Computed example of a mutant assay.
Amino acid sequence: MKQFLIRFLRLILGLFLYSLGIVVTMNAHIGYAPWDAFHVGLGKATGMSIGTASIITGLVIGIIAIVLGEKLGLGTILNMVLIGVFLDMIMAFHIIPVLNNMFLGIIMLVAGLFIIALASYFYIGSAFGAGPRDSLMVALTRKTGLPIGVCRGSIELIAALVGWILGGMLGIGTVISAMVIGFCVQTTFKLLKFDATAVNHETLDATFKMVISIKKELFNRKEVTENQVNSPR
């Protein structure tokens, strides 16, 4: 039970840091990352918040991934919902300043990418399942037989273009995000001695069985304690 709780807290921390990293990169104000451009563009086109746009996008992509044969985990579900919730919460408090300087914006953008890399360490390390966008990438790779880099790049390109058409901001930050995020993730994982490929992700049904098992364990402990208290001395 303790191990499960630690993993769950690690997942929540990872999702919060991921949202924080997104806001930092956006507020660098030199161009959004592809999916951020899509979420902002969708928000502008529909009048919904960026967080809500992220949630709806995640749900739609998650459904597509399921149809394509991918199994979802608790982390996938919470990724769909909590990143959007945390995004709106962080932006509502205005704790991250919006910059209007190219040089400082680049520094802030890279800092945000490292925050996202650290978030990935916590989120992936919880082993509760990949996010919906990652699941779609894997599903397309399996279905098409194309290299995973091609599928990932194609998805990012489409997201960026649609986001730009809808009003999301593209710029030098978009290019930097695409080129530097891999370096940030690799460097962070290396420093923390973390091998993402060694993580065996838990499916949603396995997590559900684990929760049922923990509830039974807690019930049995409570019953034993009550018997000890009520037993005659």
Rank of each mutant, 00 (worst) to 15 (best):
H94S: 10
G145M: 11
E226S: 11
V81T: 09
L140R: 04
R133Y: 01
G14M: 12
I77R: 08
F208V: 07
K216C: 00
G43W: 01
A33Q: 11
G173W: 03
S120V: 09
N230Y: 06
E156K: 06
T144R: 08
V110Y: 05
N200K: 15
T188R: 14
V138Y: 14
T197N: 08
K215C: 05
T225R: 14
A117N: 13
L42S: 03
S49H: 03
G43H: 02
G14F: 10
I83V: 15
G73T: 13
M80I: 14
F208Y: 11
V40W: 00
F103E: 09
R10M: 11
I63R: 01
L140T: 13
G69L: 05
F103G: 02
C184Q: 07
I181M: 12
H94Q: 12
G145H: 07
F8V: 13
T188W: 14
K143Y: 09
M89I: 15
M26F: 01
I50A: 05
A198V: 00
D36K: 03
I116G: 02
I63K: 03
N227G: 07
M48W: 14
L68Y: 13
L140N: 06
V81F: 15
V162Q: 04
I66A: 11
I12V: 15
I165W: 08
G105M: 01
T46D: 07
G145P: 09
I96V: 15
H29T: 04
G84V: 11
A111D: 09
L5G: 00
T188V: 15
I148G: 04
L68V: 02
I148M: 15
L218W: 04
F122I: 10
I83T: 14
K222L: 11
T203Q: 04
P97L: 07
E156Q: 02
